[in-house]
């Protein structure tokens, strides 16, 4: 049977500026998927623009690929990732007028 693990990297966190999630090791996993749940949002034309970042040592980071995912309001956004390195994190940029978003961020990984 395959191994699986769900980590809640942010649980009920309100962001008003750009952020990165804490480094998370997933070298054992062959595939993974982000679930970003926007619980609440306020501001004008607010968007959370997210890219997956990878690292060989948990210290230095680069983008996994060129893709960007965007959350524009309450609800769930998800996308798969593969061929990543030792560590994973999300880099998020907030756009819009006085943006404020409350997020729950899951990383699900599978061997």
């Amino acid at each position: 049977m395959r191994q699986t693990l769900t980590a809640v990297l942010e649980r009920d966190t309100t962001f008003t500026t750009d952020f990165v999630t804490e480094p998370y090791e997933a070298a054992w996993a062959g595939e993974a998927r982000w679930f970003v749940h926007t619980l609440a949002s306020s501001g004008g034309g607010v968007a959370v623009r997210m890219v997956t970042q990878i690292s060989p040592d948990g210290l230095t980071w680069c983008d996994l690929d060129g893709s960007e995912r965007v959350a524009t309001g309450p609800g769930l956004v998800s996308w798969p990732i593969s061929e990543f390195g030792q560590w994973l994190r999300l880099h998020a940029t907030l756009t819009g007028e006085n943006p404020s978003v409350k997020l729950r961020i899951y990383l699900t990984a599978k061997s």
Binding site: L5, A7, V8, L9, R11, D12, E22, Y24, E25, A26, A27, W28, P56, D57, G58, L59, T60, Q86
Partner: peptide, 23 residues
């Protein structure tokens, strides 16, 4: 409602399966 979780007990971080890899 997770905003009702005590501030000092709401962010103890998920454990990780680590290969103990260093720079």
């Amino acid at each position: 409602d997770l905003s009702t979780v005590d501030d000092h007990m709401r962010d103890f971080r998920p454990p990780q399966l680590s290969s103990c890899t260093f720079f």
